[in-house]
Design a protein around this nucleic acid. Sequence first.
DNA 1: TGACATAATGAAAACGACTTTCAACTTCAG
DNA 2: CTGAAGTTGAAAGTCGTTTTCATTATGTCA
Lengths: 174, 174
Amino acid sequence: MRRLPTSPGLDERGLQRALERLREVVRARGLKNSSVREIIARAALTYEGHFSIDDLVRGLRGDALVDAHPATVYRVLPLLVEAGLIEATLVSSKAGSRYERCFEREHHDHLVCTKCGTVVEFCFEAIEVLQRDLAERFGFELTGHVHELFGTCRPCKQSDKASGGATHGRAPSR
Amino acid sequence: MRRLPTSPGLDERGLQRALERLREVVRARGLKNSSVREIIARAALTYEGHFSIDDLVRGLRGDALVDAHPATVYRVLPLLVEAGLIEATLVSSKAGSRYERCFEREHHDHLVCTKCGTVVEFCFEAIEVLQRDLAERFGFELTGHVHELFGTCRPCKQSDKASGGATHGRAPSR
DNA sequence: TGACATAATGAAAACGACTTTCAACTTCAG
DNA sequence: CTGAAGTTGAAAGTCGTTTTCATTATGTCA
Protein backbone atom coordinates (compact mmCIF):
# COMPACT_ATOMS: atom_id res chain seq x y z
CA MET A 1 0.00 0.00 0.00
CA ARG A 2 1.23 3.47 -0.78
CA ARG A 3 0.25 6.95 0.19
CA LEU A 4 -0.10 9.36 -2.71
CA PRO A 5 0.43 13.10 -2.61
CA THR A 6 -2.78 15.07 -2.76
CA SER A 7 -3.54 16.10 -6.31
CA PRO A 8 -1.06 18.89 -7.11
CA GLY A 9 -2.92 20.40 -10.08
CA LEU A 10 -1.87 19.95 -13.67
CA ASP A 11 0.98 22.02 -15.13
CA GLU A 12 0.58 23.87 -18.40
CA ARG A 13 1.72 21.00 -20.61
CA GLY A 14 -0.58 18.50 -18.92
CA LEU A 15 -3.37 21.00 -19.10
CA GLN A 16 -2.94 21.28 -22.85
CA ARG A 17 -3.15 17.50 -23.20
CA ALA A 18 -6.28 17.50 -21.06
CA LEU A 19 -7.91 20.24 -23.11
CA GLU A 20 -7.09 18.31 -26.26
CA ARG A 21 -8.81 15.29 -24.77
CA LEU A 22 -11.80 17.47 -23.93
CA ARG A 23 -11.97 18.72 -27.51
CA GLU A 24 -11.99 15.13 -28.73
CA VAL A 25 -15.01 14.38 -26.60
CA VAL A 26 -16.70 17.60 -27.67
CA ARG A 27 -16.11 16.74 -31.31
CA ALA A 28 -17.27 13.14 -30.84
CA ARG A 29 -20.53 14.37 -29.34
CA GLY A 30 -21.17 16.89 -32.07
CA LEU A 31 -20.82 19.82 -29.70
CA LYS A 32 -19.04 23.07 -30.33
CA ASN A 33 -15.93 24.41 -28.71
CA SER A 34 -16.35 27.20 -26.23
CA SER A 35 -13.95 29.38 -24.36
CA VAL A 36 -16.03 29.42 -21.18
CA ARG A 37 -15.93 25.64 -21.08
CA GLU A 38 -12.18 25.68 -21.36
CA ILE A 39 -11.90 28.27 -18.63
CA ILE A 40 -13.91 26.02 -16.35
CA ALA A 41 -11.88 22.97 -17.39
CA ARG A 42 -8.69 24.88 -16.69
CA ALA A 43 -9.88 25.86 -13.23
CA ALA A 44 -10.90 22.28 -12.42
CA LEU A 45 -7.73 20.69 -13.74
CA THR A 46 -5.32 23.05 -12.05
CA TYR A 47 -7.17 22.95 -8.74
CA GLU A 48 -5.06 21.45 -5.95
CA GLY A 49 -6.87 18.69 -4.12
CA HIS A 50 -10.58 18.07 -3.90
CA PHE A 51 -13.01 20.77 -4.89
CA SER A 52 -16.70 21.46 -4.83
CA ILE A 53 -18.59 23.26 -7.55
CA ASP A 54 -18.76 26.19 -5.23
CA ASP A 55 -14.99 26.25 -4.82
CA LEU A 56 -14.70 26.42 -8.57
CA VAL A 57 -17.24 29.18 -9.02
CA ARG A 58 -15.62 31.22 -6.30
CA GLY A 59 -12.22 30.68 -7.91
CA LEU A 60 -13.57 31.71 -11.26
CA ARG A 61 -15.30 34.74 -9.85
CA GLY A 62 -12.13 35.75 -8.05
CA ASP A 63 -10.41 36.06 -11.40
CA ALA A 64 -11.38 39.46 -12.72
CA LEU A 65 -11.03 38.52 -16.37
CA VAL A 66 -13.31 35.52 -16.45
CA ASP A 67 -16.57 34.83 -14.79
CA ALA A 68 -18.49 31.63 -15.31
CA HIS A 69 -22.04 31.24 -14.16
CA PRO A 70 -22.71 28.41 -11.69
CA ALA A 71 -25.27 26.88 -14.04
CA THR A 72 -22.57 26.62 -16.67
CA VAL A 73 -20.19 24.98 -14.27
CA TYR A 74 -22.92 22.48 -13.46
CA ARG A 75 -23.22 21.81 -17.17
CA VAL A 76 -19.52 21.46 -17.84
CA LEU A 77 -18.39 19.23 -14.99
CA PRO A 78 -20.26 16.13 -16.19
CA LEU A 79 -18.55 16.55 -19.53
CA LEU A 80 -15.16 16.62 -17.83
CA VAL A 81 -16.14 13.46 -15.98
CA GLU A 82 -17.20 11.83 -19.23
CA ALA A 83 -13.89 12.83 -20.77
CA GLY A 84 -12.08 11.09 -17.93
CA LEU A 85 -10.47 14.30 -16.71
CA ILE A 86 -12.04 14.56 -13.28
CA GLU A 87 -14.09 12.23 -11.12
CA ALA A 88 -16.58 12.56 -8.33
CA THR A 89 -15.48 11.61 -4.83
CA LEU A 90 -17.43 11.07 -1.67
CA VAL A 91 -14.93 12.81 0.55
CA SER A 92 -16.77 14.96 3.06
CA SER A 93 -19.70 15.08 0.70
CA LYS A 94 -22.26 15.94 3.36
CA ALA A 95 -23.50 18.75 1.14
CA GLY A 96 -22.83 18.96 -2.55
CA SER A 97 -20.68 16.97 -4.95
CA ARG A 98 -16.93 17.01 -4.75
CA TYR A 99 -14.48 16.25 -7.50
CA GLU A 100 -10.80 15.77 -8.10
CA ARG A 101 -8.64 15.46 -11.15
CA CYS A 102 -8.04 11.91 -12.36
CA PHE A 103 -6.40 12.73 -15.71
CA GLU A 104 -2.72 11.72 -15.66
CA ARG A 105 -3.04 10.63 -12.06
CA GLU A 106 -2.89 7.24 -10.43
CA HIS A 107 -6.09 5.61 -9.21
CA HIS A 108 -6.50 5.86 -5.46
CA ASP A 109 -9.04 5.67 -2.68
CA HIS A 110 -9.51 7.75 0.45
CA LEU A 111 -9.03 7.42 4.16
CA VAL A 112 -10.73 10.29 5.91
CA CYS A 113 -10.52 11.55 9.47
CA THR A 114 -14.05 12.44 10.45
CA LYS A 115 -12.85 14.77 13.21
CA CYS A 116 -10.43 17.07 11.41
CA GLY A 117 -11.09 16.30 7.75
CA THR A 118 -7.59 15.08 6.95
CA VAL A 119 -7.62 12.93 3.81
CA VAL A 120 -5.06 10.25 3.08
CA GLU A 121 -5.03 9.16 -0.54
CA PHE A 122 -3.87 5.61 -0.83
CA CYS A 123 -3.26 3.04 -3.49
CA PHE A 124 -3.66 -0.53 -2.28
CA GLU A 125 -3.19 -2.96 -5.11
CA ALA A 126 -4.03 -6.02 -3.00
CA ILE A 127 -7.52 -4.67 -2.39
CA GLU A 128 -7.94 -3.80 -6.04
CA VAL A 129 -7.05 -7.37 -6.97
CA LEU A 130 -9.54 -8.81 -4.50
CA GLN A 131 -12.23 -6.52 -5.86
CA ARG A 132 -11.62 -7.81 -9.35
CA ASP A 133 -11.66 -11.41 -8.12
CA LEU A 134 -14.92 -10.81 -6.38
CA ALA A 135 -16.60 -9.24 -9.38
CA GLU A 136 -15.44 -12.06 -11.60
CA ARG A 137 -16.67 -14.64 -9.13
CA PHE A 138 -20.16 -13.18 -9.42
CA GLY A 139 -19.97 -12.81 -13.18
CA PHE A 140 -19.77 -9.02 -13.14
CA GLU A 141 -17.66 -6.91 -15.43
CA LEU A 142 -16.30 -4.25 -13.10
CA THR A 143 -16.68 -0.66 -14.26
CA GLY A 144 -15.96 1.29 -11.11
CA HIS A 145 -16.08 1.41 -7.35
CA VAL A 146 -16.35 3.66 -4.37
CA HIS A 147 -14.09 2.84 -1.48
CA GLU A 148 -13.75 5.26 1.34
CA LEU A 149 -12.55 4.53 4.86
CA PHE A 150 -13.57 6.65 7.83
CA GLY A 151 -11.84 6.94 11.13
CA THR A 152 -9.97 9.10 13.59
CA CYS A 153 -6.40 10.12 12.87
CA ARG A 154 -3.73 9.83 15.54
CA PRO A 155 -3.54 13.54 16.44
CA CYS A 156 -7.32 13.71 16.85
CA LYS A 157 -7.36 10.56 18.93
CA GLN A 158 -4.74 12.04 21.23
CA SER A 159 -6.23 15.48 21.60
CA ASP A 160 -9.56 13.75 22.23
CA LYS A 161 -8.07 11.85 25.09
CA ALA A 162 -6.25 14.90 26.46
CA SER A 163 -8.82 17.65 26.20
CA GLY A 164 -12.04 15.75 25.81
CA GLY A 165 -13.10 16.90 22.37
CA ALA A 166 -10.95 19.75 21.10
CA THR A 167 -9.38 19.13 17.71
CA HIS A 168 -5.67 19.42 17.12
CA GLY A 169 -5.88 21.57 14.05
CA ARG A 170 -8.05 22.34 11.06
CA ALA A 171 -11.73 21.52 11.26
CA PRO A 172 -13.58 19.14 8.93
CA SER A 173 -14.13 20.81 5.58
CA ARG A 174 -17.89 20.33 5.80
CA MET B 1 -16.00 -14.34 0.07
CA ARG B 2 -19.65 -15.13 0.54
CA ARG B 3 -22.86 -13.91 -0.94
CA LEU B 4 -25.52 -12.99 1.60
CA PRO B 5 -29.25 -13.12 1.11
CA THR B 6 -30.84 -9.73 0.67
CA SER B 7 -32.18 -8.45 3.97
CA PRO B 8 -35.33 -10.48 4.65
CA GLY B 9 -36.92 -8.16 7.21
CA LEU B 10 -37.01 -8.87 10.91
CA ASP B 11 -39.54 -11.32 12.38
CA GLU B 12 -41.70 -10.36 15.34
CA ARG B 13 -39.23 -11.55 17.97
CA GLY B 14 -36.30 -9.73 16.39
CA LEU B 15 -38.45 -6.67 16.00
CA GLN B 16 -39.17 -6.67 19.71
CA ARG B 17 -35.46 -6.83 20.48
CA ALA B 18 -34.85 -3.96 18.07
CA LEU B 19 -37.57 -1.84 19.62
CA GLU B 20 -36.12 -2.53 23.03
CA ARG B 21 -32.77 -1.30 21.75
CA LEU B 22 -34.46 1.80 20.39
CA ARG B 23 -36.08 2.48 23.75
CA GLU B 24 -32.66 2.24 25.38
CA VAL B 25 -31.32 4.93 23.08
CA VAL B 26 -34.41 7.05 23.60
CA ARG B 27 -34.02 6.76 27.34
CA ALA B 28 -30.28 7.44 27.20
CA ARG B 29 -30.91 10.63 25.27
CA GLY B 30 -33.60 11.84 27.62
CA LEU B 31 -36.30 11.56 24.96
CA LYS B 32 -39.78 10.22 25.37
CA ASN B 33 -41.33 7.14 23.87
CA SER B 34 -43.76 7.60 21.06
CA SER B 35 -46.01 5.26 19.17
CA VAL B 36 -45.45 6.98 15.82
CA ARG B 37 -41.73 6.47 16.18
CA GLU B 38 -42.24 2.80 16.81
CA ILE B 39 -44.54 2.50 13.83
CA ILE B 40 -41.83 3.98 11.65
CA ALA B 41 -39.19 1.75 13.23
CA ARG B 42 -41.38 -1.25 12.63
CA ALA B 43 -41.83 -0.34 8.98
CA ALA B 44 -38.09 0.17 8.51
CA LEU B 45 -37.04 -2.97 10.32
CA THR B 46 -39.47 -5.28 8.60
CA TYR B 47 -38.80 -3.83 5.17
CA GLU B 48 -37.27 -6.40 2.81
CA GLY B 49 -34.11 -5.13 1.16
CA HIS B 50 -33.04 -1.54 0.65
CA PHE B 51 -35.52 1.26 1.06
CA SER B 52 -35.76 4.98 0.56
CA ILE B 53 -37.61 7.34 2.86
CA ASP B 54 -40.24 7.58 0.20
CA ASP B 55 -40.68 3.81 0.15
CA LEU B 56 -41.32 3.95 3.85
CA VAL B 57 -43.78 6.82 3.71
CA ARG B 58 -45.68 5.15 0.91
CA GLY B 59 -45.74 1.90 2.87
CA LEU B 60 -46.99 3.71 5.94
CA ARG B 61 -49.63 5.59 4.02
CA GLY B 62 -50.82 2.35 2.43
CA ASP B 63 -51.68 1.07 5.88
CA ALA B 64 -55.07 2.51 6.73
CA LEU B 65 -54.53 2.48 10.48
CA VAL B 66 -51.26 4.38 10.65
CA ASP B 67 -50.03 7.36 8.79
CA ALA B 68 -46.71 9.02 9.48
CA HIS B 69 -45.77 12.35 8.05
CA PRO B 70 -42.61 12.43 5.90
CA ALA B 71 -41.05 15.04 8.17
CA THR B 72 -41.44 12.65 11.05
CA VAL B 73 -39.83 9.84 9.10
CA TYR B 74 -36.92 12.17 8.38
CA ARG B 75 -36.67 12.82 12.08
CA VAL B 76 -36.84 9.20 13.14
CA LEU B 77 -34.44 7.53 10.71
CA PRO B 78 -31.28 9.18 12.09
CA LEU B 79 -32.27 7.90 15.50
CA LEU B 80 -32.56 4.38 14.13
CA VAL B 81 -29.13 4.79 12.60
CA GLU B 82 -27.74 6.02 15.90
CA ALA B 83 -29.29 3.03 17.61
CA GLY B 84 -27.49 0.74 15.19
CA LEU B 85 -30.72 -0.63 13.77
CA ILE B 86 -30.41 0.56 10.19
CA GLU B 87 -27.64 2.10 8.14
CA ALA B 88 -27.38 4.28 5.09
CA THR B 89 -26.20 2.71 1.86
CA LEU B 90 -25.09 4.23 -1.38
CA VAL B 91 -26.89 1.70 -3.56
CA SER B 92 -28.54 3.50 -6.43
CA SER B 93 -28.54 6.66 -4.40
CA LYS B 94 -28.78 8.98 -7.38
CA ALA B 95 -31.66 10.72 -5.65
CA GLY B 96 -32.30 10.51 -1.95
CA SER B 97 -30.84 8.42 0.85
CA ARG B 98 -31.34 4.70 1.00
CA TYR B 99 -31.17 2.51 4.04
CA GLU B 100 -31.19 -1.11 5.06
CA ARG B 101 -31.48 -2.93 8.31
CA CYS B 102 -28.18 -3.79 9.98
CA PHE B 103 -29.53 -4.93 13.36
CA GLU B 104 -28.97 -8.68 13.79
CA ARG B 105 -27.44 -8.87 10.35
CA GLU B 106 -23.93 -9.56 9.18
CA HIS B 107 -21.83 -6.69 7.84
CA HIS B 108 -21.61 -6.68 4.08
CA ASP B 109 -20.84 -4.51 1.10
CA HIS B 110 -22.50 -4.20 -2.30
CA LEU B 111 -21.84 -5.15 -5.87
CA VAL B 112 -24.29 -3.37 -8.10
CA CYS B 113 -25.20 -3.88 -11.74
CA THR B 114 -25.58 -0.39 -13.18
CA LYS B 115 -27.72 -1.68 -16.05
CA CYS B 116 -30.46 -3.63 -14.29
CA GLY B 117 -30.00 -2.64 -10.67
CA THR B 118 -29.28 -6.12 -9.36
CA VAL B 119 -27.49 -5.93 -6.02
CA VAL B 120 -25.21 -8.67 -4.71
CA GLU B 121 -24.51 -8.37 -1.02
CA PHE B 122 -21.17 -9.86 -0.19
CA CYS B 123 -18.98 -10.41 2.82
CA PHE B 124 -15.28 -10.52 1.99
CA GLU B 125 -13.24 -10.90 5.12
CA ALA B 126 -9.90 -10.63 3.31
CA ILE B 127 -10.77 -7.11 2.18
CA GLU B 128 -11.96 -6.17 5.65
CA VAL B 129 -8.64 -7.30 7.08
CA LEU B 130 -6.67 -5.28 4.54
CA GLN B 131 -8.76 -2.23 5.33
CA ARG B 132 -7.92 -2.54 9.00
CA ASP B 133 -4.24 -3.01 8.19
CA LEU B 134 -4.28 0.07 6.07
CA ALA B 135 -5.96 2.24 8.66
CA GLU B 136 -3.52 1.08 11.30
CA ARG B 137 -0.59 1.73 9.03
CA PHE B 138 -1.66 5.36 8.77
CA GLY B 139 -2.43 5.66 12.44
CA PHE B 140 -6.19 5.82 12.02
CA GLU B 141 -8.76 4.23 14.25
CA LEU B 142 -11.29 2.88 11.78
CA THR B 143 -14.93 3.74 12.48
CA GLY B 144 -16.61 2.87 9.21
CA HIS B 145 -16.31 2.55 5.49
CA VAL B 146 -18.18 2.71 2.24
CA HIS B 147 -17.31 0.06 -0.27
CA GLU B 148 -19.44 -0.36 -3.31
CA LEU B 149 -18.51 -2.04 -6.58
CA PHE B 150 -20.18 -1.15 -9.86
CA GLY B 151 -20.32 -3.22 -12.98
CA THR B 152 -22.41 -5.14 -15.47
CA CYS B 153 -23.89 -8.47 -14.51
CA ARG B 154 -23.63 -11.45 -16.84
CA PRO B 155 -27.22 -11.37 -18.14
CA CYS B 156 -26.90 -7.67 -18.95
CA LYS B 157 -23.56 -8.19 -20.64
CA GLN B 158 -25.09 -10.91 -22.81
CA SER B 159 -28.27 -9.12 -23.76
CA ASP B 160 -26.12 -6.08 -24.50
CA LYS B 161 -24.08 -8.10 -26.95
CA ALA B 162 -27.15 -9.73 -28.48
CA SER B 163 -29.61 -6.89 -28.82
CA GLY B 164 -27.42 -3.86 -28.52
CA GLY B 165 -28.82 -2.33 -25.41
CA ALA B 166 -32.00 -4.04 -24.26
CA THR B 167 -31.92 -5.26 -20.68
CA HIS B 168 -32.71 -8.79 -19.72
CA GLY B 169 -35.16 -7.96 -17.00
CA ARG B 170 -35.93 -5.40 -14.36
CA ALA B 171 -34.68 -1.88 -14.84
CA PRO B 172 -32.39 0.02 -12.47
CA SER B 173 -34.31 1.13 -9.42
CA ARG B 174 -33.36 4.77 -9.95
C1' DT C 1 -17.06 36.19 -46.18
C1' DG C 2 -21.82 36.12 -44.92
C1' DA C 3 -25.80 33.68 -43.36
C1' DC C 4 -27.94 30.15 -41.15
C1' DA C 5 -28.44 26.25 -38.01
C1' DT C 6 -27.35 24.96 -33.75
C1' DA C 7 -24.78 24.87 -29.48
C1' DA C 8 -23.51 27.58 -25.30
C1' DT C 9 -24.41 30.97 -21.88
C1' DG C 10 -26.49 33.68 -17.97
C1' DA C 11 -30.39 34.72 -15.37
C1' DA C 12 -34.17 33.29 -13.22
C1' DA C 13 -37.45 29.96 -12.19
C1' DA C 14 -38.23 25.27 -11.04
C1' DC C 15 -37.19 21.10 -8.63
C1' DG C 16 -36.54 17.76 -5.00
C1' DA C 17 -34.62 16.18 -0.89
C1' DC C 18 -34.36 17.44 3.17
C1' DT C 19 -34.83 20.75 7.59
C1' DT C 20 -36.94 24.01 10.38
C1' DT C 21 -40.68 26.45 12.52
C1' DC C 22 -44.66 26.53 15.11
C1' DA C 23 -48.98 25.45 17.20
C1' DA C 24 -51.43 21.49 18.85
C1' DC C 25 -50.86 17.10 21.03
C1' DT C 26 -48.48 13.37 23.94
C1' DT C 27 -45.83 11.62 27.48
C1' DC C 28 -44.36 11.10 32.00
C1' DA C 29 -42.34 12.55 36.51
C1' DG C 30 -43.90 14.45 40.58
C1' DC D 1 -53.68 15.38 37.71
C1' DT D 2 -50.87 18.84 36.24
C1' DG D 3 -47.11 20.98 34.14
C1' DA D 4 -42.71 20.78 31.75
C1' DA D 5 -40.79 18.96 27.92
C1' DG D 6 -40.71 16.02 23.91
C1' DT D 7 -43.35 14.78 19.50
C1' DT D 8 -46.16 15.48 15.56
C1' DG D 9 -48.13 17.31 11.11
C1' DA D 10 -48.39 21.06 8.15
C1' DA D 11 -46.32 24.52 5.90
C1' DA D 12 -42.55 27.29 4.91
C1' DG D 13 -37.71 27.48 4.23
C1' DT D 14 -33.02 25.91 2.60
C1' DC D 15 -29.79 24.41 -0.60
C1' DG D 16 -27.73 21.86 -4.27
C1' DT D 17 -28.83 21.08 -8.79
C1' DT D 18 -31.54 21.29 -13.24
C1' DT D 19 -34.35 23.44 -16.57
C1' DT D 20 -36.23 27.13 -19.33
C1' DC D 21 -35.71 30.78 -22.28
C1' DA D 22 -33.91 34.69 -24.54
C1' DT D 23 -29.46 36.08 -26.12
C1' DT D 24 -24.85 35.21 -27.80
C1' DA D 25 -21.16 32.42 -29.89
C1' DT D 26 -19.49 28.88 -33.05
C1' DG D 27 -18.85 26.52 -37.25
C1' DT D 28 -20.39 25.08 -41.79
C1' DC D 29 -21.76 25.69 -46.28
C1' DA D 30 -22.72 28.73 -50.02
